[in-house]
Every structure is written in structure tokens, then in C-alpha cells.
Simulated scan of single mutants.
Amino acid sequence: MSYKVMHICLSDGWGGLEMYPARIIPELQRQGWEAHGLALAGSRVAESLAAAGIEPLTVLSRGRALLQVGRILAYLRRHGIEVLHCHKSSDLRLGALLATLRPTLRLFFTDHMGVTRPKKDLYHRWAYGQITRLFAISEATLKRNLAAFPLPPERIRRLYLGIDLSPYAPQLDAVAREALREELGVAVGQVAIGLPGRLTDGKGHAVWLEGLARLRERAPSLSWHGVLIGGLTAREGSDEAYVAQLRTRVAELGLVEHVTFTGFRPDLPRLFEALDIVCVPSRNEAFGLTVVEAMAAGKAIVGADSGAIPELLEAGCGRLAAPHDPVAWAEAMAELGQDAALRQRLGQAACARAALHFDVTTHVKALISEYAGKESKP
């Protein structure tokens, strides 16, 4: 077979799902595969693919993509592409149509979101029936996938996501780190407690802020500063109305002088260096990419005891707190905030676990093994 794959992501949003193709393209190429992309014209996905070194085929809308199926098939034939990989369930209409019209295509789908309802009606039986392999990104989503999708268990596989770990290795000297902390509003000697990620409902910002308010009571002698890392606009992947609600709640809790909104930052690995504790209070993560990034950076982590996060953050690598309990968050942050040696031990264990299980090289090796597999579609 030809070692070529087209990643299809017709999304105008910007999150982990949309970032995935560009994240793995360099490693795909390093392992001998030629990558192509199909994206919406002008989207962040299209921009990220171009930045990763490939010029994607673009369409104006999902509807236009279906109308231009002949153009897409011609592109696949011209480039000798036999593998398609979809990342949004809505893109499977196109992927399944392409696979129906050209039965030699192998179609893969990653369920990045974690399906929440059964998909076994006539349409979904047809669309998912064209899939060679469906990837669940955690054990938590695998259970839901097995129950929801009209596929036999052997065609669904759990495949953890992976990242390039190298950017998260420390690079700043003491002076540069202190300068960055000062830029983030963290005073000398303060414990920096960060929450990275999109500012959207479901990511747990509210319980984290409530936890910070209670942290003042739980550990009155602890000097700390909270850092909210994430875009503040829709273009940057955040919910602007939600951002406004968070700012209001910060004021109501008397935390204006204690919490910094950084806005979008392209230097997240360096920001991790400036933090002492990383919090991920998302209520129902299908995977938890931010957790893995913080692990790779060797940070002490508090994660929500829900979704896939407990799988990633095993005992000895961090702390878990109930996603709706601000008191539990305050207690976990107080424990880590008051014990620098504990933070170091947890961070070292987390970093070792990330290297063992969540490296992009390992992920892509498993992925291309599936791409090149001998299984045939029914």
C-alpha cells in the first residue's frame, strides 16, 4: 500500500480535536508517512496544517464538501491516498461517502469528544459501517464507544493520545523564570497555581475559583497567586460570555488582586515552568491533554476525579478532587502549596509516566500500524 493519509477535519473551532492533525504530522512524516489534509478554508485547522508543512485541500463548508466529492476523489487518486482519518462525527458523512464510492479506501475515526448517546439508527449504521477502525482515546470513552456505536468490539480500539514531550523540558534559568512569574502577576515567594485550557463551560473554572476563595481560609499563611491561561475571545477558542461571567465571579469573590487572566499564550510549555501547581478541574474530559502536558512539564497536578483524568493521573503522580466540590479543591491546593518537596516528588513521577505512556512517537507508531493493517472492511 502507499504510505499516505488524508486527515479530514472540517471544523471552524479550535481545541484539542482541531489541533490533533497538525500535532502528529511531523511524527507521521518522521516515521515515513506522507500526510495530507482537508479543512475549511480560512479555519484555524487549515492554518495549523499549513504551519505544520502541508498545504491542505480546502472547502468552503461541510455542505460544499459533499457537493465536491468528485473533486476530493480526484485529489485522492492523483496523490495515491488510500487512508482517510476523520476527527469529527459530522465529517463521517463525507468520509463514509468517499469510502462507499471508492471501496479500497481505509477509513479511520477518532472519537475525541466521547460519545454520549447511542448512534445505531439506519444512517449511523451505514456511516460507521464504512469504518475500518474507531479509536477511543481513553478507557472511559472506550466503554461508551462500545455501548453507543454500531460496531463489533474488535473494530474499536483504545489508543491514548500522545504529545511531543521535548518542548516541556525546562529551558528557563532562574532569572528568566522569575521574570516570567512577575509578568504573570506572581510575586517572589508566592506559590503559582495555574489552570490552563479553553475558557468554556465544563472546564471547571468556577469550582477552581471557589476553591481559591476557600484556600485563603484553609491555609491563611500560604502566599499564592492564581493564573488562568487561555484565550479570551471566540477566535481563540473561548466563550466570550463565559469569560465575562468568570471576571464577574472573580470580583465577587474578592480575587481580583489574586488572579491573572493571561489571554492566549503560544508559550504554554514555558508558562508551565513558571507554575508550581497545575489544576485541571474539567468535569468530563474524554482524555485530558492538559494533564499530559503538565505531566511532561514535571508539575504537581490536581485533576478532577471524573472522566479520563484518573486514568492519566495515577496515584503517586498527583492529586484528584471531586469536580463539584470547592472544599476538596481548596484542601488539595493547600496540601501541595504548603509542601514543596511533595510537589517535586509528584512532578517527577508524573513526568516519568508521561514519557512511558503518552509520547507522540509511541502514539504514531500504533496509529500507522493500524493504517497499514490487513483487516478489510465488511
Rank of each mutant, 00 (worst) to 15 (best):
Met1Glu: 12
Ser2Tyr: 11
Ile8Ser: 01
Asp12Leu: 05
Gly15Arg: 09
Leu17Gln: 09
Met19Tyr: 10
Tyr20Ala: 01
Pro21Ser: 02
Ile25Trp: 02
Glu27Thr: 12
Gln31Tyr: 07
Ala39Arg: 03
Ala41Leu: 14
Ser43Asp: 06
Ala50Asp: 05
Ala50Asn: 10
Gly53Glu: 09
Glu55Ala: 13
Pro56Gly: 02
Leu57Gly: 09
Thr58Gly: 07
Val59Glu: 08
Ser61Arg: 08
Gly63Phe: 10
Leu67Ala: 15
Leu67Trp: 13
Ile72Ser: 08
Ile72Glu: 06
Tyr75Gln: 03
Leu76Pro: 00
Arg78Val: 04
Cys86Asn: 04
His87Gly: 03
Ser90Cys: 03
Leu92Ile: 13
Leu92Pro: 02
Ala96Tyr: 01
Arg102Ile: 04
Thr104Arg: 15
Arg106Lys: 13
Phe109Arg: 07
Asp111Asn: 08
Gly114Pro: 00
Thr116Met: 00
Pro118Glu: 09
His124Gln: 02
Arg125Ser: 11
Arg125Val: 05
Tyr128Asp: 06
Ala136His: 09
Ser138His: 06
Thr141Phe: 06
Ala148Gln: 02
Pro150Lys: 10
Pro150Gly: 03
Pro150Thr: 03
Arg155Phe: 12
Arg157Ile: 10
Asp164Asn: 14
Gln171Leu: 14
Asp173Ser: 14
Ala174Ser: 15
Ala176Gln: 15
Arg177Cys: 12
Glu178Pro: 08
Leu180Val: 13
Ala192Thr: 04
Gly204Asn: 05
His205Gly: 04
Glu210Leu: 08
Ala213Gly: 05
Arg218Phe: 07
Ala219Asn: 14
Pro220Arg: 12
Ser221Glu: 09
Gly226Asn: 09
Leu228Ser: 08
Leu232Arg: 15
Gly237Arg: 11
Gly237Glu: 07
Arg249Asp: 02
Leu253Ile: 05
Glu257Lys: 06
Thr260Tyr: 00
Pro269Glu: 04
Arg270Ile: 05
Phe272Leu: 10
Pro281Arg: 00
Asn284Pro: 00
Gly288Thr: 01
Leu289Ser: 15
Thr290Phe: 14
Gly298Val: 08
Val302Cys: 01
Gly303Cys: 02
Ala304Asn: 04
Ile309Asp: 06
Glu311Trp: 09
Ala315Ile: 05
Arg345His: 09
Gln348Tyr: 12
Ala350His: 04
Ala354Asn: 13
Asp359Gln: 11
Thr361Phe: 09
Thr361Pro: 11
Val364Ala: 12
Leu367Glu: 10
Ile368Ala: 08
Glu370Gln: 15
Glu370Tyr: 15
Lys374Ile: 14
Ser376Pro: 03
Pro378Asn: 05
Pro378Thr: 07
